[in-house]
Design a protein around this nucleic acid. Sequence first.
DNA 1: GAAAGATGTCCATAATCTGGACGGAGCAGG
DNA 2: CCTGCTCCGTCCAGATTATGGACATCTTTC
Lengths: 307, 307
Amino acid sequence: MSIIWTEQGLDTLERMAPEGSGAQSVDRALTLLSLIGRHCEKGASLAAIVEGSGLNRPTARRLVLALIRSRLVEQDPVTRRYFLGEEAYVLGVLASRRFGFLDCALESLASLSKTSGDTSFASIRRGDYSVCLHREEGAFPIRTHALDPGHRHPLGVGAGAMAMLAALDDAEIARILDTNQAILAEHYPAYTSEAFAQDIAFARSRGYALNPGRVLQNSWAIGMAVRYPDGHIAGALSVAAIDSRMGEARQAELARDLAAEVLKVETRLSGRFGAHPTTNGRPFKTARGDLPPQSHSTAPSTGGVEP
Amino acid sequence: MSIIWTEQGLDTLERMAPEGSGAQSVDRALTLLSLIGRHCEKGASLAAIVEGSGLNRPTARRLVLALIRSRLVEQDPVTRRYFLGEEAYVLGVLASRRFGFLDCALESLASLSKTSGDTSFASIRRGDYSVCLHREEGAFPIRTHALDPGHRHPLGVGAGAMAMLAALDDAEIARILDTNQAILAEHYPAYTSEAFAQDIAFARSRGYALNPGRVLQNSWAIGMAVRYPDGHIAGALSVAAIDSRMGEARQAELARDLAAEVLKVETRLSGRFGAHPTTNGRPFKTARGDLPPQSHSTAPSTGGVEP
DNA sequence: GAAAGATGTCCATAATCTGGACGGAGCAGG
DNA sequence: CCTGCTCCGTCCAGATTATGGACATCTTTC
C-alpha cells in the first residue's frame, strides 16, 4: 500500500563483502548491528533480524549474542526484543568529536520547526544511502511520519537525500544510482531516471532540493545540504509538510529559512572542526561505496590533511 | 612514573567471553572497537591495537578491516591511524534515544565549570568500569588532564566513578572490587581495600564522593551520581581541581552546586524517559558483569517494565 | 644511507562457524 | 484443559573459516 520501505531487507549483506577478505562473521554481525539500529524505536525482534539479514535463526542469534556481550546491543528481558545498548551510545559520544553534525544541527532544527510549524529532519549520508538522525516535530497538527530516526533511504530519495545527491558530481551520482538501481526499482517506483534528472536539475538551479510527494503522496519536503569547512558534505536539513503547505511561495519562504539555518550549522561546524587545520580534528573522506581492501600507496585521492 | 593507566591493556579479552559461546571473532573485533574508542582523540596505531588487545598483527588487522568495512572505524590514509567512523556516530545518535545521559548533562557541566572555574566531567558506568564521556574545561589556568573522554577506569577510581560505586549495594560493590582486583593492584596502588572502604563511607555520609588525589597527586575531585527516574544509575558528574582549591569549605560549596546540577540533570532525564511508564522509552538494566549466556526464564531480577 | 620500526600481506594448518532439526514458552480458540 | 500455532532458544556433525609465523614494503632515525 505505502511505497515506504521501512522493514528494509537483505540488501547490505550481499553487496558488502567486496570479496573474501576474512572476518566474515564480523561483517555479518555488524550488519545486524546496523539493522538493529534501524529499529531503534521499538526494538527488533529476532524474527525481524532473521528476515532482514537473510541469515538463519541460529546464526543470527549467535551473532546478536556477541553484540550483547559487547554491550552494543541489549535485549529486553520480557519483550525479547533487541535494542541498541549503552556501548553504542558511548562510542557515539566519542565519535561525535569528529562527526558532530547532529550536535550542530539540533538547534537549527528546533528553530526551523518552530518558525515553520512543520516537521524538520537532519540526515547524513552513509555510503549510497541517507540515514535520518533526528526528527523535530512542528506545531502544525497534520504531520507526516514518512521518516523516522534510523530510517534509511537510497541517496536521492527524499528532500534531504536529494540535496546531498545533487551536491555530488555527475560521475558519482551515476555510480550511486546505478548501485541502487535494483532497490529503487523495487521499492521506489516513483523515482525513475527522469524523476532523478528533474529533481537534480531543480535542486541545482534553485539551491534547494524538492521532494514533490515522491515517497508518500501529499507529503512534500525541501532540503539543503550542509558542508564541513573543507567542502565535503556533512549532511542535510529538510522540512516536510503536506502539499497544500508547499506552494511556490511557501517553498521560497521555507528555503530562505533553511538557507539561514544551514549557514548557522556550517558556522558551528566550522568553529568545531575548522580550527584545527593541521591536526586530525575532522573526519577525512573514506573510500566510497566499495573499499578495495586497502592499497597502501593508492590513496592520494583526498588526503587526510591539507591540500 | 604516573599512576595513570591510559594505554590500558589486555584486560577485557580474557575475561569477556564467558565460555565457548561462539562468534569469537566478533568478540575480538568489538573489543578492538572499544579499544579504538579509547584512543578517539589521537587515533590508535595498529601497534597500539595489537599491544592493547593481545592479538597479533595479522589478526588485528583483519578484524579492524572488518570494522572499516562497516564504517564503524576509519583509517587516516596518511597517518595510518584508526579512528571511530561515521557509523559509530550514527549508532550513537540512535542509541541516545534510550541513553541520553550526556545530552541531559552537557548544560550542567557548562554551568559547573563556569561557576567553579574548574574542570567538570560526565562519566557513565559500563560494566565494572567507568567511562568518561565529556570533559568541560573551566577558566582556572591550572587544569588537571587526568581524565580524557574515552578513558576508562575501574568503578570507584576517581570521584565520579566512586560516586557510582558507592551508590550500589554492598554485595555488588564487593563483586566489582573483586573482579577488578588484579587491575587495581597493578595500576592503581593507591586504591587499597581500606581506601575504598573509607571513600565509600565518606561518599555515603556526605552525599558526595571525594577523590583526594588518589589517581594523580594534587588532583582532587568530588563527584555525585545521577539516576534515571526508576532509580538506577545513569552516570555521574564530577568536578576536579588542584588540592589547594579543594579545602573543606570549597568542597561544601562545590558539592552544593553539584547537587543542584545533578537534580537538574535528573529532571531532564525524567522529562525524557519518565514520561513513558509502560512503553520502552528508557533503558532496562542488563545482566551485569558476566552474562550467563542467556537463561530464558531466570531474569526476574529487574524486569524491563514497571514493578 | 643503512638500520630500526611499523604497516600490510600470504598461506598451510587447525580451529571455528554453519544450519537443519529439536525442545519449550506463550497465546488463541474450542 | 488440550490443540495448534508462532516465535524463541539450543545442539551437534560437517564444512568452511580464521590463525599466526614468515615475508615484503614503506617511513623514520641516527
